[in-house]
Amino acid sequence: MVLVLGEVQTAALRHSGSVPRELAEGVLALLAGERVRVSERPISHAVSPHVLTGVDCRIAARSGARVRGVGTLMGRVCLTGGRVLQGSAVVRVEPIGGGHRRAWSHYLARPGVVETLGRTDLPGTAAAHLGADRSSSTMGMGAVCNRLIAEVQGSSLLDRRPPVRARRTVLRWAALTDSDIEGVRVRFTVHEDGLRTVRLLLGQVPVADIVELCEDLALHDWLLTALVSIIEQSRIGVDEPVQIIHRLRPAVDHLLHLWMPAARLGGFALSVWEGLDGRPGLSRQWEASVRRIRDQIAMAAALAHRPAEAAPLFR
């Protein structure tokens, strides 16, 4: 059995416009000499080089026991549509017998792997990772994500005038993989304070595929959360249509075109997304929210061009 843990933080980029390719490459160039990967289809997507963070800490299990872990976390930053920024951290946990710490050169040669010294309860470690509150994260993954996002947001290339203000969300995930497991079992939970958790039980799957699945889920969960927040703050049915449309406009200009679930996924990740979308109904809620915005725009246009004698019909 193999345990992979991760965390993804998602936020709006602090820039007034959609970031073009050249600017995206500049703000995501976290390591000198390392290339920023950029794709344009079906939606622009830029990924920074991986950044390693060494850790030597205690890792909690559900039982309350703690085991020492030594190794490196692997982090990166993603920018989708020139608008949505994500900081992502991942680590594979490997129990090592003997309990002797090795030189750092050994751990640096195994990027994204933390070796635990002593007896390790992998399912218990996964449960503790998912059960922690938003302010606590295993091996400081939250701090890694926050640092990477802060480095990009602080770039002098950005004007720091975001048109959409939405709360940052945190998606914390744990994947237990085993060759004896058939199919995929997944549990997606929405918690308070912008925290989401995903638990995966699956067969042998490349870690990169799991990371991309969780980043895509975090992206679309943030888009839906931001859209619902804008609608709630628009005061539909309370204020005048012109005021309501003014508050809804950022969603139309900057969010609606970004919804493309599983656009870059394939294989097992695509099937997991389809299963998730069928139960929580993320796409159904998104489509209902988009229809509500378009209905408000249509009604405002009808009211603006109605003849005076028809006014009572709209009261």
Rank of each mutant, 00 (worst) to 15 (best):
D239W: 10
Q243R: 15
W286K: 01
A269F: 03
V238A: 07
G281T: 07
L256T: 09
L282Y: 03
Q296V: 14
L248M: 09
P307I: 15
S283V: 00
S271W: 04
E309D: 14
S271H: 14
G278E: 08
S289N: 02
R291T: 05
L276W: 01
L265Y: 00
L255F: 11
G281M: 04
V238N: 00
L303I: 13
I236K: 01
A262Q: 01
G281E: 06
L256F: 10
W273S: 00
E309N: 03
W259S: 04
P241W: 06
Q243E: 13
D295E: 06
L265M: 02
D253A: 12
A263Y: 05
P280G: 07
G281C: 03
D239L: 07
A263D: 01
V272Q: 00
R284N: 01
L276Y: 01
Q233C: 12
Q243W: 02
G237V: 04
E240M: 13
Q233H: 14
G267F: 05
Q243M: 13
L248R: 09
A304Y: 12
A302E: 13
A302G: 04
G275R: 04
S283Y: 01
R306V: 11
V242T: 14
R247N: 12
V252Y: 03
H305G: 08
I236A: 05
W286A: 02
E274S: 08
P280M: 04
V290T: 04
R291P: 00
I245G: 13
L270N: 04
R292D: 05
L255W: 03
A311C: 02
A311H: 05
M299P: 02
M260Q: 15
E287R: 05
G281A: 03
R284Q: 03
P241L: 08
L255R: 00
A300V: 06
